[in-house]
Design a protein around this nucleic acid. Structure first.
Lengths: 238, 238
DNA sequence: AGCCATAAATGATTTTTATCAGGAAGGCTC
DNA sequence: GAGCCTTCCTGATAAAAATCATTTATGGCT
């Protein structure tokens, strides 16, 4: 379940376009070869769950192409989106390294291809290549900083401010398509689940931002019209 | 500034009681020796700032004895406490490793003694001892999990629920003194800054919990009378 | 292309939380 | 230990956000 059969031709990590921006960026050719041989390919359709909160993953996924959301289920069963993953990101390593159950479910926001690296191979790479764990360390320290920002934002900003902020964050993370729309489609509910508010509230505030000219929407496609208004609104400090 | 002169006799890391629970837990004798020789001692009085948000630390602190709060300043200048540190915790390494400015200020909640390890020595240890960076990685992955919990809590729970939760978290982190009071004194404002609410709201809700018999307060000293009521209230999932 | 389920939008209302204001108590300094 | 400043507490009010109820629109599917 979850992992489907190989849909993409498996290719060598050495040739992967994502490598420079991934945790594998500094792996030597030899280790890279080991990984390449031990990995398998996995495809996830839009909406499909990659990892389940509370589970014990037996390996990590390296996202080849796609977009995923990480979310925790609150006491009322409401999703709280805590972060995203896309090309080059490693998924599932946190749980394996801290030896704890997975803290957040991971679901594909669009059709996604990933490479699966079994736990044992993953640890092998860590042992063989100290630079690798250092890169992971770097990445997770960066994530910790982002989490701190999110905490402060949730604790101190109004829903309106957080909403404005989220659009800027999404643009920075996923970029824009050729028409200037955010390169990511989310339902209003998912937006609410990021911002930490009720779906209705999110809808109302999105309409407000739209009528104020800060953003433009076409169904689920969202275009940022006026970034500086959003920045002012969000009271972005850093 | 910040770091004061040596007030404690510098002792060898090998003999440090905190070592088993610190990131140095698996260091070999040789590396430990290097660290010991390069570290200096630092003392911080209650209320003194150890690290300033936005700064570039030139080393890391290993807390020998004391308690500190990590906090970010929101747009309105309001403190948001994001986590704590106590005996055996390493402070400042996140910023050094991700090569970013410090994300949160760190201030002593009580008189604190720490060992200061310069950046260069810190990296030396990392290079010499791969197990060390793996431990750090483990710790930061654990922290990431905690941050995710905090995010969900802030986004989905009411202030009342978060307050109940915080008391349980504080007990788990700092324990109780011989009389059963939390071994940590915080102002109502600091509690509000953890929970992410106005000071007045925190005060009101603390009074409620007290009159409901869930907690007992004596000035800034707080005793948990009825953990299960708090757990129910907080709707703790995991 | 049309149908159906799902999502989005909007209004009315309640609940929660913040803000403002004033007074009481506590803790720290001299 | 007197005095003072900070923190704590309480009440009143305002603002923000959640909830509930319906209508309208949309996008996914056959």
């Amino acid at each position: 379940m979850g992992k489907t059969d190989q849909l993409e031709p498996p290719h060598h990590c050495q040739l992967c376009n994502n490598r420079p921006s991934s945790a594998f960026r500094d792996l030597n050719a030899e280790t890279l070869d080991t990984v390449s041989q031990l990995k398998t390919c996995a495809a996830f359709k839009k909406g499909q769950v990659m990892l389940h909160e509370g589970a014990r993953p037996q390996g990590v996924y390296c996202i080849h192409k796609g977009k995923l959301k990480f979310y925790r289920l609150g006491s009322e069963g409401k999703e709280q989106i805590v972060r995203f993953a896309t090309n080059g990101d490693l998924v599932g390593y946190r749980s394996i390294l801290s030896d704890e159950p997975i803290g957040a479910s991971v679901t594909a926001l669009e059709d996604t291809f990933a490479c699966y690296i079994p736990k044992s191979s993953f640890f092998e790479v860590i042992d063989q290549n100290p630079k690798f764990s250092l890169n992971l360390l770097q990445d997770s320290c960066h994530e910790l900083g982002e989490a701190g920002k999110m905490i402060t934002s949730l604790a101190q900003k109004t829903v309106r401010q957080r909403l404005a902020e989220i659009f800027l964050v999404l643009r920075a993370t996923f970029g824009e398509d050729h028409e200037g729309y955010l390169d990511l489609k989310l339902t209003r509910e998912e937006i609410a689940n990021m911002v930490g508010t009720a779906t209705e509230s999110a809808i109302r505030l999105i309409s407000e931002l739209r009528s104020e000219g800060a953003i433009h929407t076409a169904g689920r496609r969202i275009k940022i019209e006026d970034p500086s208004t959003l920045r002012d609104l969000a009271a972005v400090v850093d």
